[in-house]
Amino acid sequence: MSDHVLKVVEEEGFGDAGAKSFFKMARVLDCFSRTNGSLSLTQLVEGTGLPRTTIHRIVASLREIGMIDQDGRRGDYRLGLRMFYYGSVVLANLDLNRHAHSHVVSLHQVTGEIVHLHMFDGSHMVCIEREEMGDARNTTLTTIEAAPIHCTSVGKAFLAFQDQRLIRKIVAEEGLAARTVNTLATYDALAENLALIRERGYATDEEENEIGIQCVGAPLRDSRGRVFGSISVSGPTLRMPLSRLSGLSHAVTQTANAISAELGWDPSKKRR
Results as ranks from 00 to 15, higher is better:
H118D: 07
M119C: 11
M119Y: 02
M119A: 03
D121L: 08
D121G: 12
G122E: 03
S123W: 00
S123I: 07
S123E: 03
H124N: 13
H124C: 09
E129S: 12
R130H: 09
E131I: 08
E132M: 14
G134E: 12
G134C: 15
A136E: 08
A136S: 14
R137H: 15
R137S: 15
R137I: 15
N138H: 15
N138Q: 15
L141M: 15
T142Y: 15
I144P: 09
E145C: 09
A146V: 08
P148S: 10
H150L: 07
C151M: 10
T152V: 14
T152Q: 05
V154R: 10
K156G: 00
F158Y: 14
L159I: 00
F161N: 01
Q164K: 12
R165F: 12
R165T: 08
R165I: 15
R168N: 07
I170H: 04
E174R: 05
L176S: 15
L176G: 10
A177E: 15
A178Q: 02
A178M: 11
R179T: 05
R179P: 09
R179S: 09
T180M: 04
T180V: 06
L184S: 10
A185I: 11
Y187F: 11
D188M: 08
D188T: 14
A189C: 03
A189P: 00
A189K: 05
A189R: 12
L190Y: 03
L190H: 03
E192P: 01
E192I: 02
N193Y: 01
A195G: 06
A195M: 14
L196V: 12
L196F: 06
R198H: 09
E199A: 13
E199C: 13
G201S: 07
G201C: 10
Y202S: 06
T204P: 01
D205R: 00
E206Q: 03
E207A: 08
E208Y: 00
I213Q: 05
Q214R: 09
V216R: 02
A218P: 01
L220Y: 00
R221G: 01
R221T: 09
D222S: 13
D222P: 06
R224H: 12
G225D: 07
G225Q: 05
G225R: 06
R226I: 04
R226A: 09
F228D: 05
F228I: 07
G229P: 02
G229I: 04
S230A: 05
I231N: 00
S232Y: 00
V233R: 01
S234Y: 01
P236E: 06
L238C: 11
M240I: 12
M240H: 03
M240Q: 04
P241D: 06
S243G: 14
R244K: 12
L245T: 05
L245A: 06
G247S: 10
G247F: 05
S249D: 02
H250S: 13
